[in-house]
């Protein structure tokens, strides 16, 4: 197990690389879902008025 974590002495490179990849992938999912949800909220609040995009942005608290 320890030898796996040490990555043959390259732990300082391999793990940060995988870490940053995981971070970017997770952030991507999170931001895509958040923007989807926010837009649904805005659509709900705008109530189908003519130009909803001109309405002030509503932030979730």
């Amino acid at each position: 197990m320890m030898s796996f974590l040490q990555m043959g002495g390259y732990a300082a490179y391999v793990w940060p690389a995988y870490g940053i990849t995981l971070l970017v992938l997770v952030l991507n999912v999170w931001s895509a879902r958040r923007s989807h949800r926010r837009k649904l909220d805005r659509a709900r609040l705008s109530d189908g008025r003519e130009d909803a995009s001109k309405q002030p942005t509503v932030r979730r608290l």
Binding site: S35, H36, R38, S53
Partner: peptide
């Protein structure tokens, strides 16, 4: 993302 984009474009 496309879903979010569709929601934004189809508000009315």
């Amino acid at each position: 993302r496309l879903q979010g984009e569709i929601v934004e474009r189809e508000q009315a």
